[in-house]
Amino acid sequence: MTAFIEIRALHKRYGAFTALKGIDLVVARGEVVCIIGPSGSGKSTLIRCINLLEDFEPGSQITVDGTIVGRGPGLAKVRAEVGMVFQSFNLFPHLSVAENVMLAPRRVRGKSRDAARRQALELLERVGIADQADKHPSRLSGGQQQRVAIARALAMEPQVMLFDEPTSALDPEMVGEVLDVMRGLAGSGVTMVVVTHEMGFARQVADRVIFMDEGEIVEAGTPETLFDRPTEPRTQNFLRSVLNH
């Protein structure tokens, strides 16, 4: 397995508050990494640094497929290779579902309208909502909107997909349909970094689970090791609090 994302000594401060205290993490091509941890542990900040939605401190370094992530002409290229799905979907409300998926391939990849539309319909089929293609996002349920967001990110044919708590804003009955789509992606060999509170999903799908707390990686390992035989007291406490109810 070759390193695809390399994060070295990643520090991030908000004024006096240090959100990330030196993160080192390597994600291999095809690997599915789930990041768990309490709120405010820095897990969302971490994945938002990978495509530079958050700036980070000098001395930190992130490379994606060998390209250094930083402000400059290379940034758009990195972002085009890194798909992202947000907690709050962030679909474009003025565009139809299909147009949401078509926009970036047309503008960034220079695809023709017809080719982009064909691709959008295929992707919408894949996430199970091809019949909604010409509606506006506001007509869709939360689960459907998040699946559109996944299709929109996939349309750029990214090398890696980042998921920032993709099911946290959903009604409970819609969590399953989104996790099913993500499970399908993981099974098809897409590299994924997933920040999640869904422990069942992490255990089942992840190649590696990372537990973060207070801006640090406390413990990392296979789902079996981390969930069944955690060695760090902080990990044990966290798992006890989320699994015992």
Partner: peptide, 14 residues
């Protein structure tokens, strides 16, 4: 909303 700018940036739009 900020999320609209972030979604655009994440897709590689200039």
């Amino acid at each position: 909303p900020r999320g609209q700018f972030e979604a655009s940036a994440a897709l590689g739009l200039g």
